[in-house]
Nucleic acid binder design. Structure first.
Lengths: 173, 173
DNA sequence: GGGCGCATGTAATGAGTTACATGATTGA
DNA sequence: TCAATCATGTAACTCATTACATGCGCCC
């Protein structure tokens, strides 16, 4: 939750926005950094408003549904910096999804496992290629590029690990 | 949830066990692969029993509280293999926790950020060392070793990425 | 007698998702 | 006129966690 709060406060810090805008920006530009969903964004905005970290003004364009435009408050800025510092020092402790399966791989014939891992390897390489193909440059948020590089590094690491694992399986008598 | 189900079914496949035993095994031997908590294990066991993937017999030792000893059923074995295959082909798509903070790093003075990243780097190196120090060998589940190697690789990757990022920050005018 | 290990469970809470519901504007 | 985009929100649900509650046996 802290992470999502940090994201919303950070986006509002650079510019007052309404919910739709924030969600739209995340979907379009930050799909590779956050998976926050629309409903989550709206309800977080509501909650942050209630707790005084952001404040809302209502805007209306003609006959359209009214917008709730949110701005960050001084308390919100303080919270933003606190969360940002916490986030920067925090160690990533990975518990990769697929590793439970790896634990039980001996329950299947070696060749079958190698087949699955090769499939996974190919899909991961595809994913990596898609990241390498599109150098993203999100305006005013150029730290995003560092996170993309981070993910690319992680994919490469995964690929190496899979190759090594497959090799080792193959080498088994 | 699928992952937790796979874990429990996999453990029961090798041996009928009661809840306490399963939780104990996970805590002692699989703390680096799964973070499933006691209450989760118990309620999952209940649920899997209700859906027929496992079955329970009651055992009593003297006057102690009765144990629910669970065994995997044929339906459970089928489910196990299905989940195992799914798990093995599934691509890991990492969304590292700390990366939201990285996006906003420009909001803090460069030197402060470098300080935080160095702190994070040191902590990660410590964590890595703890993984490298203890070569785990869980009996009958030797795939676990591969997952430990996986995490070691990911930590090394993270460390490299942090060093590179710090270097780049330093190089900024 | 007190604390630890064995053994089971429930209740409250929290975070987040999916799916639903509504309605205006705009462009093909 | 029909679909897409703009715009907001709620309700039900799932998953998992924390904290609580209980009680025996064993050893110091």
């Amino acid at each position: 939750m802290d992470e999502r709060t940090l994201l919303i406060l950070g986006l509002l810090k650079s510019q007052s926005q309404h919910g739709y805008q924030i969600n739209d920006f995340i979907e379009r530009n930050l799909g590779r950094v956050s998976d926050m969903k629309k409903a989550t964004a709206y309800s977080l905005l509501k909650k942050l408003n209630e707790s005084g970290l952001i404040e809302a003004t209502t805007e209306q364009d003609g006959n359209r549904p009214a917008k709730q435009v949110y701005s960050i408050t001084p308390a919100g800025e303080e919270k933003f910096y606190k969360l940002l510092r916490m986030s920067l020092v925090q160690v990533n402790d990975y518990l990769p999804h697929g590793d439970i399966g790896i634990c039980f791989m001996d329950q299947l014939p070696k060749d079958e496992v190698i087949g699955y891992l090769n499939e996974r390897l190919a899909k991961t390489e595809e994913l990596l290629a898609s990241y390498e193909a599109v150098p993203p440059h999100v305006e005013h948020l150029h730290g995003v590029n560092l996170t993309i590089r981070h993910r690319i590094a992680l994919f490469r690491c995964d690929i190496e690990w899979m190759k090594q694992t497959i090799e080792e399986l193959r080498a088994r008598s």
